[in-house]
């Protein structure tokens, strides 16, 4: 997955699709206004764009799954709230991903946390040392799942498009500029 080049595919709007299908097995509410997969090498470009669009970094988390690690970046905006989530798949054998520290210094700790709990290495991180874990911690990172417990993408995110989107694509630019919680996030 990570090796694939991003195809600027015209992805249908997932939220609308969900509503159309009315499948009971799919959550109605996700909290995301724009949800996309990215190739690791294009992460920085996308994050820079988000930075220019005045987003702030909410969270960096990681999900361990069969295909590898899915690093999830949550962004939101103060002026025109709308959550953008970037998902990057990286392989289990070589869990490396560029650090977004240079763009969002606040990511430093989130990345260190991911490094602690999953062993994901963020290249270019200035200070990738254990943050929450004991530095003398032995053994595998604590949040890694056992082989048998791993699920794959289709089991976890049914009915979503897992093809990476290019940050240069019109869709991406349009979505991050227009997303706001008015569209899908009537939480109550």
């Amino acid at each position: 997955m990570s090796e694939e080049n991003a195809k600027p595919e015209k992805a249908p709007d997932k939220e609308k699709e969900v509503k159309k299908k009315e499948e009971p097995q799919v959550p109605k509410y996700t909290g995301y206004d724009y949800d996309c997969f990215l190739a690791p090498q294009e992460l920085l470009k996308a994050v820079t764009k988000l930075d220019h669009a005045d987003f702030f970094l909410e969270d960096v988390s990681c999900v361990d799954m069969q295909e590898g690690f899915q690093v999830v970046y949550h962004f939101d905006r103060f002026s025109q709230p709308g959550r953008v989530v970037l998902r990057v798949m990286i392989s289990r054998e070589n869990p490396e991903i560029p650090s977004i520290y240079d763009i969002f210094p606040g990511a430093a700790w989130h990345e260190r946390e991911c490094f602690d709990f999953f062993g994901v290495r963020f290249t270019g991180h200035p200070n990738l040392i254990p943050l929450l874990l004991d530095p003398e911690h032995q053994g595998p990172p604590p949040l890694l799942k056992e082989e048998t417990a791993l699920k794959d993408l289709n089991q976890l995110y049914p009915d979503r498009v897992h093809t990476p989107v290019s940050p240069d694509s019109e869709e991406f630019v349009k979505e991050i500029n227009n997303c706001s919680n008015q569209k899908s996030r009537n939480q109550s």
Binding site: G31, H74, L156
Partner: peptide, 10 residues
């Protein structure tokens, strides 16, 4: 037993 998928609630 929530359905498969993910949610971000803030």
């Amino acid at each position: 037993k929530p359905p498969a998928g993910d949610v971000y609630f803030a």
